[in-house]
Amino acid sequence: MLDKRMSAADAVAQIKDGMTIGIGGWGPRRKPMGLVRELLRSDVKDLTVVAYGGADVGMLCAAGKVKKLIFAFVSLDAIPLEPWFRKARQAGEIEVLELDEGMFQWGLKAAALGLPFLPTRVGLGTDLAELGGLKTVQSPYDDGETLIAMPALKLDVALIHANRSDWRGNVHLFGPDTYYDDWFAKAAAKTFVSCEELVDRMEDHYPGEAHANIFERCFVSGVVHMPYGAHPSSMPPSYGWDMKAFKAYAAAAKDPGDWAAVADRFVGSSEEAYLESIGGKEAVAALPLPIF
């Protein structure tokens, strides 16, 4: 179907128990939090989550949605240690595959290209291979080099937040860095994109900005119009991350320390209710971009 518009609930309805879900963005940046919140409102469980983690990972761990986590870090940057993720880890609640940041994107690329693995030196000399069960391969050429075979990180579903899209899934992603969102999309059987701005025909609105179409629409299964859908993460150039919200979220991990007691505050009964509770769309729009 060429018209890929759908609600967040429709997108999340396609995520089943036990699936492997990739989440785009990086730490506290460009996270499809609106879709993650919708996932948190659902009954889906036993997920394998693949992410350069931020509060998306922390919340899904806290809510008991995660069976296994594939990660290189989980961090909110200014709050370096993601508190809900730490709680889940220190309680031994989740299985993990810990990877180097570069290996991680290499695994997405292997999946995108339909390869079983891609070779790399990364991981040699560390505990990653042994702990994660990663195997080595030997170069068949004269050099005979031993390399780690980074397995493909095949995703059932990828969730990505884009700056804009049209109803056919022609997306535009811009801002200083789009991280590995394109590879998440290509590594997944289905990719659902939430977007800040939805237009009818991209070519009628932004014909001069097609270079922002960092992955093609054949990789997009669904488009969800979700302005401010990255909150509390940042979505440059529209808005920065919400440090106050991150601090409250981190504080709640200590007191009361029970996700069930605070889930309503950080997830809400609906996206409208959530945005209302944090001061409305104007409040998100006013969040300054972070300075590095």
């Binding site: 983690g53 990660f71 290189a72 870090f73 989980v74 961090s75 370096p80 240690l81 993720f85 730490r86 880890r89 220190q90 810990e98 990877l99 180097d100 940041e101 570069g102 290996m103 990364v122 991981g123 000399g125 560390t126 990653l128």
Partner: peptide, 11 residues
């Protein structure tokens, strides 16, 4: 004690 994760250190 869970810390950041290995980040990019192995590479």
């Amino acid at each position: 004690t869970q810390m950041l994760g290995v980040r990019g250190f192995p590479g």
